[in-house]
Simulated scan of single mutants.
Amino acid sequence: MRASLLLALLIISVWATAAPPAARPGVVLDHQTSSASSASGACGGSAVRVSGLESSSQARTFIGPQGSIKIMGATTLTIGPEAHGNSGIFLQDRNELHCLSTGKGQMLLLAMHCDGRSCPIVDYRVVDPKAARVISAQSAMDECDLPCAEKALGVSVPKALRN
């Protein structure tokens, strides 16, 4: 009994001193500045603005479904709710946007996470920021899965953006 009490105290002390989960940024851009609800920066030399940032209890930041993403390259591409978006892309429940270095130059990867409605668990869009256009080839269902995103990027999708 004494040994089990000591073991329980040890477990509690280890649990109490464990570090909180590391914050996971939902937006990663070059020269990024952020506030509680927005971020701006660059990718591939183009300006990028994001609104609608939210935080979860797991120290994760993401773009909410009512957020918007504006990419200002050769033209302007806006991703967001209905009237605010010219891309035809609707954000899902939790969305992440990362600027990635690839063999084709810097690309934006948008990972859209669905929380259980009739949509894929993770749907991707790869955006060429210089041209401000989507370069991933969506399926007939307007979806881009992991192989689709990796084909458009020419590199592997980072593990942090897979789930």
Score class of each variant (00 low, 15 high):
97 L>V: 08
144 C>Y: 11
49 R>L: 11
43 C>R: 03
108 L>W: 00
42 A>H: 09
120 P>M: 02
155 V>G: 01
155 V>H: 02
59 A>Q: 03
5 L>H: 14
13 S>Y: 08
82 E>N: 08
12 I>K: 07
108 L>S: 06
65 P>V: 04
49 R>N: 10
141 M>S: 15
88 G>N: 11
11 I>L: 14
151 K>I: 00
147 P>V: 00
116 G>C: 02
61 T>F: 05
16 A>R: 11
26 G>M: 03
2 R>G: 12
136 S>A: 10
43 C>G: 12
160 A>G: 15
42 A>Q: 10
22 A>G: 07
79 I>V: 13
23 A>V: 06
131 A>F: 05
138 Q>C: 04
134 V>N: 06
41 G>W: 09
40 S>E: 13
30 D>K: 00
139 S>E: 08
157 V>I: 03
54 E>P: 15
28 V>F: 01
110 L>D: 09
77 L>P: 11
35 S>W: 14
26 G>R: 04
35 S>M: 02
160 A>Y: 08
132 A>T: 11
102 T>H: 08
148 C>A: 09
98 H>Y: 15
18 A>T: 06
61 T>D: 02
147 P>H: 02
132 A>L: 02
163 N>S: 15
61 T>P: 02
38 S>Q: 14
158 P>H: 15
79 I>Q: 05
14 V>K: 05
88 G>C: 05
145 D>F: 12
144 C>P: 13
96 E>T: 13
102 T>R: 05
27 V>I: 08
24 R>Y: 02
48 V>L: 05
44 G>E: 03
153 L>M: 08
133 R>Q: 13
101 S>H: 10
152 A>E: 06
18 A>F: 03
20 P>E: 14
101 S>D: 15
25 P>K: 06
51 S>W: 03
65 P>F: 15
84 H>L: 05
70 K>V: 15
17 T>Q: 06
160 A>M: 09
101 S>R: 05
58 Q>R: 12
87 S>D: 06
117 R>T: 11
118 S>N: 08
92 Q>E: 14
155 V>N: 09
21 P>H: 05
15 W>C: 10
132 A>V: 11
133 R>F: 04
117 R>L: 12
49 R>A: 14
162 R>A: 13
158 P>C: 15
85 G>W: 03
74 A>G: 11
